[in-house]
Write a protein that binds this DNA or RNA. Structure first.
Length: 455
DNA sequence: GAGTGCGGGTTAT
DNA sequence: ATAACCCGCACTC
């Protein structure tokens, strides 16, 4: 245990280098990190008790609670990502990577469902488990003290990021039924979703704008697409944002922030177009959507035979399904909801194309594997992350002056038992927070005005 | 219904 | 002893 007195050379985040989540004593830090939704690798963060997402132990990754028999430290392990068994490609070259349900029961229902990509031929959803921590799932640890929330991640995810957590939730909250009349209304709704996405996690945006240099994912539906009312791309199909030459593509955003535009437009598929693209040629992009619109999360709700024995392969990337898999009794042409997917209108899968398509190897963190030698499967390079990798930064406005140490045990029994775990009794309060909330209120109101105007 | 936290219990190393 | 994992329960939204 290293006693932390002051930090001026932090490379990992605020007061993150010299403590471990299992330390009997954790430092009272002088500065906090802004919340990072997509923490990857072996990182440690310290969040202010007022950070709502930290209090909720939120994460972009699909993390499930894991019992570590330690009431002081909450442990979560990564569930991986829901992918297509045949690794089909979307028109933009990316792959399906949905968010696995946290609930075991719901997750089992997801598996074996036909791939929602209408261009996919016979693929089914399966969970690609996370093996980023020495062969085990990446784990997150949360620990609360009176004046801070300590977060530590162990392992680097060896799979694409799943669909952002808010995506399906927002759609569900928006969902005023399945019926969508016309493409205009549909697109307006998608734009509204994007707007609402910007308001669902106000604190994150707040921290981004004010104190958070951590790169956060762009909205699932970029601002540019909100004006693409002539774009008729369906879910998985809108490749407008991938066009290398914006001038040649009406759908391409002209108002996209430069950084994002660069990220998207510099993309060059490392592989030939997927064979399924030939199917796309027969698809009439101008066709109006079917009357009844199914969203993937709705698919998951349907009562379909669950293939509980669906193979869970360690390296699913190289394991295409068998002929039997592709021609099972659950073949999609007979499934009514699959037919609906032939006329998609919603936005689904992840709006974040799989970084894997960039090729290369996923980042390695062998040095952190202290349990056993384990060679992580090559996947995709860190720089190929669709979202910019998170950097380290401090939160100047959240700096506090003094330093103390908290111990669960003798020194901190009262703190931890009566305060630290009482989310409603956070001690963090400052004018800065007030300013942040005011900023959010303004932003929220603006977004909601736009949102209401669209629906 | 799904997400989440908690805790008892089992298994493997 | 430690870690991963399964399962059930309760609570919340």
């Amino acid at each position: 245990m290293v006693i932390l007195t002051s930090r001026t050379d932090m490379s990992e985040g605020a007061a993150t280098a010299d403590w471990d989540i299992n330390d009997a004593v954790v430092p009272r830090v002088t500065s906090f990190d802004a919340f990072g939704e997509w923490c990857d690798g072996h990182v440690r963060r310290v969040y202010p008790p007022a950070c709502e997402e930290a209090r909720r132990h939120a994460s972009g990754w699909a993390m499930r609670n894991t019992n570590n028999h330690n009431v002081h430290i909450l442990k979560k392990s990564c569930l991986g990502v829901l992918v297509c068994s045949v690794r089909c490609r979307l028109p933009d070259g990316s792959r399906v990577h949905l968010r696995p349900a946290i609930c075991d029961k719901a997750r089992k229902k997801q598996q074996g469902k036909p791939c929602p990509n209408r261009l996919c031929n016979g693929g089914r959803l399966e969970v690609q488990p996370c093996r980023g921590h020495c062969g085990y799932p990446v784990t997150h640890f949360w620990r609360h003290t009176e004046h801070a929330i300590f977060f530590q991640a162990k392992g680097s995810h060896d799979h694409p990021r799943p669909e952002a957590k808010g995506a399906s939730e927002v759609r569900r909250s928006l969902g005023a039924g399945r019926r969508v009349r016309g493409i205009a209304l549909l697109l307006a709704r998608e734009a509204a979703i994007a707007d609402k996405m910007m308001t669902v996690k106000p604190e994150k945006q707040m921290s981004q704008k004010l104190v958070n240099p951590h790169s956060q994912p762009p909205p699932l539906i970029p601002d540019s697409q909100r004006v693409q009312l002539t774009c008729t791309c369906g879910p998985f199909e809108c490749s407008c944002r991938w066009r290398a030459d914006p001038s040649s593509e009406p759908c391409m955003a002209s108002t996209w922030p430069l950084s994002e535009a660069q990220t998207y437009t510099t993309y060059v598929p490392p592989v030939p177009p997927a064979p399924s693209l030939s199917v796309q040629q027969h698809y009439d992009p101008t066709a109006l959507p079917a009357d009844d619109i199914f969203h993937p999360e709705e698919i998951f709700q349907l009562d379909q035979p669950i293939r509980l024995d669906y193979p869970m392969e360690e390296n699913t990337l190289e394991s295409p399904p068998t002929f039997a898999d592709l021609n099972s009794e659950n073949s999609r042409p007979e499934d009514p909801y699959w037919l609906d997917w032939q006329h998609p209108t919603g936005s689904e899968s992840s709006e974040t194309p799989s970084p894997e398509l960039f090729g290369g190897c996923y980042q390695q963190n062998e040095g952190y594997c202290d349990q056993q030698a384990y060679v992580q499967q090559p996947y995709y390079p860190e720089e190929a992350q669709y979202y910019p990798t998170e950097s380290t930064r401090n939160s100047p406005i959240m700096d506090i002056q003094d330093q103390r140490f908290y111990r669960y045990g003798q020194d901190c029994v009262q703190t931890l038992e009566t305060q630290a775990w009482n989310y409603s009794d956070c001690a963090f309060s400052s004018n800065d927070v007030t300013e942040c909330k005011q900023y959010f209120d303004v932003q929220h109101q603006q977004n909601m005005n736009a949102f209401n105007g669209l629906l």
